[in-house]
Every structure is written in C-alpha cells, then in structure tokens.
Computed example of a mutant assay.
Amino acid sequence: MKKKKTPSAPLLGLQSPCSLAQRKPELLIPEQHVIQLCRGLRSSSFESERGRELETSSLYKRRRRARALKLNKRARQRAATPSEELNHSWFDIFRSTMETEKRTQKSAEQTVTRDLSEQIKEVTKESHVRAENTELMLSFQRGQVTLPQYKLLLCSLYEIYRALEEEMDRNSNHPAVAPIYFPAELARIKSIEKDLEYFYGPDWREKIVVPVATQRYSHRLRQIGKENPEFLVAHAYTRYLGDLSGGQVLGRIAQKSMGLKSGEGLSFFAFPGVSSPNLFKQLYRSRMNSVELTAEERNGVLEEAVRAFEFNIQVFDGLQKMLSVAGNQQRQSSTDSKAVHGKTLQILGTFSPMLRMVLGLFVALAAVVGLYAL
C-alpha cells in the first residue's frame, strides 16, 4: 500500500533552507533574494525611497535568475513567483529583528553613562529658557538695558562670584574641583570690583544693595563648599560658561544701551586670559567630563545644576522688583512734590488780599508817624 503524499506546507518561508535544498532547490532562488532584500533594507527604512526601489525591482530580479537555470516551465514559474506568504514571513522576521535591535540599542544608550556636560545641558534645558525670558534678560536681548539695571546686577554678581570663587579657592585640591579650576582664565571678582568702582566711586562697598535671593544664592554656595564640594562643579559650569558664551554679545549691547565709551564699566564681560572662547569651552567640558563621580554624586550634581538656574532666575526677578519699587517711590516723590508746590501757590493766592490790606495799613501808619514827627 502506497503512502499518501503529504502536501507541502503553505508557508515556504518558514521551512529551513536545508529542507528546501533537498526537496525543491529552485525555491531557494526567491528565498535567498528575500534575505538579500532584507539585508539591503537594514540601511534604509521600508518607508524610504530606497526601500520602495528594492521592493519594486524584486520581481524582475527573481525572474532573471530563474531564466538562468535549466528548469522546466512550472519550476521556473514557481522560482520566479514565490508565494506571498514567503515574502511576508521573511519581512516580518526582518521587522521583528530590527525592532529588537532598536530596543537593545536604546537600552544600551540609557545604561551607558553619558558625558556630565551633556547631562547638565539636558536637565537644565527648561530652566535655561525660563532664565532667558526673565524681564532683566529680555532687556539685554532687546538692547534696552538701563544703567540702574546694570548697576544692581553688578552688585549681585559681586556677592555671587565672591562666594563661588572663595569656595573654589578653598577646595582647589578637591578631586571634583581641581580639573575645572581655572582662576587665571575665569576669575571674575577683580573685574566686577573694577566696574563697581567706576559706577559707585571709591566707597562702592558701602553702597552695594542686593535682593534677598542673592543672599540665599551666596549662602548656598558657601554651604556646599563646606559640605559637598563636588556640587561646585554645577555652579561653576553654569556661571562661567554662561558668561563666557554670551559675554561679548551682552557687553556690546550694554555699551550701546548705556552709552558707555571705550569699555569703561564693562570689565565683567571681558576674559583677557581666554584667547579662543570656543576652544576653551571644549577644554572645560572635557575636564569636567573627566571628573570621577559615583552615581549618587552625579545625580546630586545634576540636581544642583537645576538649582543653580533657579537661583539665577530668582536673583533676576528680585533685581527687577527692586527697580520697580525704586521707580514707584521716585514717581510718588515727584507727585508729592508737585502737590506740595501747588498747595503752596494756592495758599499764597488765598491770602494775597489780606497781605495787600496789611501792607496798606503799614503804609498808612508810616504816613501818620511821619506827620507826627513833623
């Protein structure tokens, strides 16, 4: 009794190449072509122009290869036109493989530690935008900064940089601080003192006024200098590279807005020790990225970077409030002065008839006394 022939499985793409090679070798032609097609698509997505071109030329290539073999008509037809399930099975396998690779790559990127400078840039992106949109910074960007604004800003910068640089000096040998310690190139305190003396005179220290937010910022810098010196990395990066990046532009804006000549009062924006800001920033980031931190310390630095931006935003808002209060007081004083002047004139106008009568009496009395003397 002859054994019934078992029909071949409909999904040829799911059969092993060895099985196909033994039973129907001509079917390896479309199978191999689909594999090569998938390999070609690895470098271009299915939606791309290249992907569509590969799919379009698929049928032509299969037929050309089938004609090159010595096959009968039916075998040639099957080799040139494989089942739809074959294509779908291989493309499904390809898609699944690519998705798995993407997930693995994404997971690896999240696992591998990125550069600290890039992480700080990422976590402070939103805070950076908010800082740029404070009223004080918008005045700089619009070229409308006033002398009172700039003078008050210098006062706050003096207190902030004095705290930062004193703590950087004190912790200059700390493993996290030493790589980014560039006092000759970046120190700002001497430049700010020079500007304050230009605007306020020799006794400028007695005239400094800062908002409460500036005092809080300075206190925080001194606190971490004693307790967590590695957090100084976040504040130094935020302040120094921020001032170095926008210093020249903001300096020109301030000079033009306030009508200052020959850079007097603008020493804060000048970095004579840095010949190329871009190259120096690359060096600084490289040094900062080389700092060895534990996972806990790194997270603490990132949180401190966000806090540094928040402190700066609070300082800018505090300075603007001080300017608003001073402006309101000045306007109120001017209004009161005008009111007092008006009342004085009104009083004089009210008593003018009486004054004329008194003068008349004095004249009459003088005449009587004169007659009596005669």
Score class of each variant (00 low, 15 high):
residue 1 M to R: 05
residue 7 P to M: 00
residue 8 S to G: 03
residue 13 G to A: 04
residue 14 L to E: 07
residue 16 S to W: 08
residue 17 P to G: 02
residue 22 Q to N: 08
residue 33 H to Y: 03
residue 40 G to C: 01
residue 45 S to G: 14
residue 46 F to A: 13
residue 46 F to C: 06
residue 49 E to Q: 15
residue 50 R to Y: 09
residue 55 E to W: 15
residue 59 L to S: 15
residue 68 A to N: 07
residue 70 K to E: 00
residue 70 K to F: 03
residue 71 L to S: 05
residue 71 L to E: 01
residue 72 N to K: 07
residue 93 I to P: 02
residue 104 T to K: 11
residue 119 Q to S: 09
residue 122 E to Q: 14
residue 126 E to Q: 13
residue 126 E to K: 12
residue 132 E to A: 04
residue 133 N to D: 13
residue 137 M to D: 00
residue 141 Q to R: 12
residue 153 L to D: 03
residue 156 S to Y: 06
residue 160 I to N: 09
residue 164 L to Y: 01
residue 170 R to E: 12
residue 175 P to Q: 13
residue 182 F to C: 13
residue 187 A to S: 14
residue 189 I to P: 02
residue 196 L to Q: 04
residue 206 E to N: 14
residue 207 K to T: 10
residue 217 Y to D: 11
residue 221 L to Y: 05
residue 239 R to G: 01
residue 248 Q to G: 04
residue 249 V to R: 11
residue 263 G to C: 00
residue 264 E to M: 07
residue 265 G to H: 03
residue 267 S to R: 08
residue 269 F to M: 11
residue 276 S to F: 04
residue 277 P to K: 00
residue 277 P to D: 11
residue 286 S to F: 14
residue 286 S to P: 15
residue 288 M to P: 02
residue 292 E to L: 05
residue 297 E to W: 02
residue 299 N to A: 14
residue 299 N to L: 06
residue 303 E to V: 01
residue 308 A to Y: 09
residue 310 E to P: 06
residue 310 E to G: 11
residue 312 N to P: 08
residue 318 G to Y: 01
residue 318 G to N: 03
residue 319 L to G: 00
residue 326 A to S: 15
residue 328 N to Y: 11
residue 330 Q to W: 12
residue 332 Q to K: 13
residue 334 S to F: 14
residue 336 D to V: 07
residue 348 L to R: 07
residue 360 G to P: 06
